[in-house]
Computed example of a mutant assay.
Amino acid sequence: MCRWLAYSGRSVPLEAVLFQPEHSLIDQSLNARLGHTTTNGDGFGVGWYGRHSELPFRYRCLHPAWSDTNLRETARAVRAPMFVAHVRAATGTPTQETNCHPFRFGRWLFVHNGLIRDFPLLRRDLMMAVAPHLFRWIEGSTDSEIMFFLALTFGLERDPRSALEQMAGFIEKVGHRYDVQFPLNMTVCVTDGQQIVAVRYSSETASRSLFHSTSFRQLRALYPEDPRIIAAGDDAFLVLSEPLIDVQDVWEEIPEATILMSKGGELQQEKFVPRMPKAEV
């Protein structure tokens, strides 16, 4: 369906992650090994945090990532200590720039791989649950963006874990109301420039693939002369749909129904349990 990644560490050129590894995200846009689809050519996007702006920057385009020369130039020029990137395979909504990830609200960025099943059937109920003060900021027509704005409605900016669990629980309740057996399949990531929160969850317990890096110290020991690894630093961290290089023990698969929270070099991994919103929607 889609492929995505999120990076935190020392400031590095975006190309060091997006283009240069043997199985980079750009390679995955053409040749995904673990995705539901091999090709992810229905647009792409990158969001990053810089030192001169409170808000994250974005570059999104509806063209395939592998053919966009401006993306390569941007990735070569821009350095950032935290960024997310996404290559899209559409699941029934149009190929247009406003449907490309990452989605943004304030300091928050959001990417998603998966789907809300029978989304056209559930769309009205889900959209009507978005808080009125947030509704005006919805730009596109994807299920992914509605997931983001539901999480914001349920308090993402205060408590990301609680908000994401409530978002998932609400979608499942609406889906079951319409006899959709397995309403939700997702790997998602949200970040505010300080933390990365990622979830692997599906109603049918068969989520899309998701991994995180284990140790950049180990990578540096394996590749002591690689300037990209040296530049990232020992505390660098990646969470991603597919590994970027084929090296054992560098990547750890995130289990089904798990939330991962990374901040300031600390990593927590806990059970993800969808639940109904605290206030009735």
Rank of each mutant, 00 (worst) to 15 (best):
W66K: 04
D68S: 14
T69V: 13
T69A: 13
N70W: 12
L71Q: 12
L71R: 12
R72N: 07
T74D: 07
R76K: 08
P81Q: 09
M82L: 11
F83N: 01
V84W: 03
A85Y: 03
V87Y: 00
V87G: 01
A89N: 13
A90Y: 11
A90D: 09
T91F: 11
T91V: 14
T93G: 10
P94H: 14
P94D: 13
T95Y: 09
T95L: 13
H101W: 05
P102Q: 05
F105R: 14
G106L: 12
R107L: 10
R107V: 09
V111N: 03
G114I: 02
D118W: 06
D118V: 08
D118E: 15
P120D: 15
L121G: 13
L121Y: 10
R123T: 12
L126C: 06
M128D: 07
A131S: 11
L134A: 06
R136E: 13
W137R: 14
I138K: 07
D143V: 13
I146Y: 10
M147P: 03
M147F: 04
M147S: 09
F148P: 08
F149S: 03
G155H: 07
L156F: 08
E157Y: 09
R158V: 06
R158D: 13
R158W: 06
P160V: 02
R161H: 11
R161W: 08
S162Y: 15
A163N: 05
A163E: 05
A163I: 06
A163C: 07
L164E: 07
L164D: 05
L164N: 08
E165S: 12
G169C: 00
E172D: 03
E172M: 02
